[in-house]
Design a binder for these strands. Structure first.
Length: 489
RNA sequence: GGUACCGUGGCCGAGAGGUUAGGCAUUGGUCUGCAAAACCACGUACAGCGGUUCGAAUCCGCUCGGUACCUCCA
């Protein structure tokens, strides 16, 4: 069998994945800043790295998956007057910042659960690691790569670049950054515009603040990930993931911080999922195409023709490779919805296949091809294409037009289901959950209206039969003048 | 303007020098009391223009268009 190969953003190449301490794998993924409802942009990394998490486990690795909750917020912009996103939201809504954090964290969790994204092994919060963040800043200062201005600490990119290389992840070089950045006059405390904050002194309007040796304030943008990833995964650790939008400056700065503090990089493989567009356009609040997951699941957005189930969204995302941009449109989502239904129907057909004494198909091929696809940088679309080849085979088997031995049938069932449910993380919504419950009520109503028609024809044999059968299932039927009523026992 | 990347049939989306990706939609057929499902058949698509090559969607150059981040602007 081929080996798992993943695309490392750092080297811009596909590399064979070799964990540092097999069978253990450390995986860190940048999680949400919990100051707003989870939206489409949150779904892509969640599903991408959920697939990775599931596949690594399937391959037999013991994975520690760490995904942070950013509850300290990021500055609105790089300038001094920037305000913490969470603090701003809290001020506007007159809440404690941690109330905002709690509310949106729960919203995020429930959306992830609907998408069937497994919970991470550890979900650390930035606010719970202020002490460690201060320690990291101290270390960077001690090594001479940071300077203080009025109680704030900044990373000295120019000095760092003399000894190391800034920009290795994003492919930027500091001379270009210099050439393309006009020095802003005014109150900017930074020596250079591309220096970044490690610690910010809190202004009076900042309501989230912690004591530190330099000032009462809060940690800079990038410190939390450097701290929490290595605290729980060691240094170095295997995989750091996130969206491509975080590549620069966030991940670039994480690398600089690690090297400045410890003289070496903390991450062995960097993985970045690509972004989502809507009707070919980027998603943005100002563009009116900003869709939350709740709007997607209920269909309550003007761009949506209908509601799309969480599984339809998940399947749709898996039909594209994670490093490609993915375009959302009603047409594309409806196509995914139908494709998923076909896949699930085939799964149910598996139970109708009767074994024979010989096999006319080669079951081993499905394994080989699926593993080959997933090993190639998680090429889920190709893996799904292989599954669809087998959907046809399964349908032919169910119709008795192909034959399969009992042994092969067992292999096929078990492998098909392992990949579909355990690795791809899909669910058959038709046989589980809310849709099912909703349907039950409608079915009972339908049966009772057929019974009513029978009664009106004086076909009491049929009407009694329906009532008795329902009673046996625990449905109590009561006749009324204007029709019927029922309740569950 | 800088950096990275992308443009594939009606739609979504794999592939990456020579052989059918796949899904959805459309069309014809088989099956069927009707319908649905299923199965079978059908699509020479790779932004444009040059170049390299026996051969390019796949490599190189230019042009056009798009995306993300940075910058600029607010």
């Amino acid at each position: 069998m081929s080996k798992l190969v993943i695309y490392n953003t750092l080297t811009r190449r596909k590399e064979v994945f070799e964990p540092l301490n097999p069978p253990h794998v450390g995986l860190y993924v940048c999680g949400p800043t919990v100051y707003g409802d989870p939206h489409l942009g949150h779904a892509r990394p969640a599903i991408t790295f959920d697939l990775l998490f599931r596949y690594l486990k399937h391959l037999g690795y013991k994975v520690r998956y760490v995904r942070n909750i950013t509850d300290v917020g990021h500055l609105e912009n790089d300038a001094d007057e920037g305000e913490d996103k969470i603090a701003k939201k809290a001020r506007l809504e007159q809440l404690e910042p941690m109330e905002v954090v709690q509310y949106y964290t729960e919203r995020y969790h429930s959306a992830m659960r609907l998408l069937n994204a497994l919970s991470p092994s550890i979900e650390p919060r930035a606010s719970g690691h202020i002490v460690e963040q201060i320690e990291l800043v101290k270390k960077i200062i001690a090594n001479g790569f940071a300077y203080e201005r009025n109680g704030s600490i900044y990373f000295d990119v120019v000095k760092y670049n003399k000894k190391h290389t800034y920009g290795i992840l994003s492919g930027r070089n500091i001379d270009d950054l210099m050439a393309n950045t006009r020095q802003l006059e005014g109150q900017d405390e930074k020596q250079n515009p591309f220096d970044f904050a490690l610690w910010k002194k809190a202004l009076p309007q900042h309501i989230m603040r912690w004591p530190s040796p330099w000032s009462e304030g809060f940690p800079g943008w990038h410190v939390e990930c450097s701290v929490m990833s290595t605290k729980y995964l060691g240094e170095p650790f295997d995989i750091h993931g996130g969206g491509m939008d975080l590549l620069f400056p966030h991940h670039e700065c994480e690398i600089a911080q690690s090297v400045a503090a410890n003289g070496k990089q903390a991450v062995r493989y960097w993985m970045h999922n690509n972004m989502i567009t809507i009707n070919g356009q980027k998603m943005g609040k100002s563009l009116g195409n900003f869709i939350t997951l709740e709007e997607l699941f209920t269909g309550s957005h003007k761009l949506l023709d209908q509601a799309y189930s969480p599984m339809a969204i998940r399947f749709f995302m898996l039909q594209a490779q994670y490093r490609s941009t993915l375009d959302f449109s009603n047409e594309a989502l409806q196509a995914a919805e139908k494709g998923l239904a076909r896949l699930m129907a085939a799964n149910r057909q598996l139970d109708r296949i009767k074994p024979s004494t010989t096999s006319s198909i080669q079951v081993n091929l499905i394994k080989e091809k699926v593993y080959e696809a997933l090993n190639d940088d998680l090429n889920s679309p190709v893996a799904i294409a292989v599954l669809f080849d087998w959907v046809r085979q399964i349908n032919l088997l169910a119709e008795g037009k192909e034959s399969i031995t009992e042994f092969d049938l067992h292999e096929l069932k078990s492998f098909f289901r392992t990949i579909v449910f355990d690795v791809l993380g899909l669910e058959d919504e038709q046989t589980s959950g809310t849709k099912h419950a909703e349907l039950t009520g409608k079915l009972i109503d339908m049966l009772l209206s057929i019974r009513l028609e029978a009664k009106q024809r004086k076909d009491f044999a049929t009407s009694d039969k329906i009532r008795e059968e329902l009673a046996r299932l625990g449905v109590i039927v009561r006749d009324r003048k204007d029709g019927f009523d029922w309740e569950l026992e």
